[in-house]
Amino acid sequence: MPDPIEPEAPKFNSPEWLAQRDKVIRQRNVAVALVLVFFVVLFFAITIVKMKH
């Protein structure tokens, strides 16, 4: 069975390509920030639990 035809990717450095690139990078930055915040909270929680013991 042939592969489904993929939508044509925007050309390199075109406004659409740059907009998509910025969107992807922004999403990645948000994801990394959330992970870092999560680990900060987790390390505080682990420290508190360890101090109790």
Partner: peptide, 12 residues
């Protein structure tokens, strides 16, 4: 090759 340069990998 330059015209089809892929976008950066996203978090997914």
């Amino acid at each position: 090759a330059v015209q089809t340069l892929p976008l950066p990998a996203d978090w997914r």
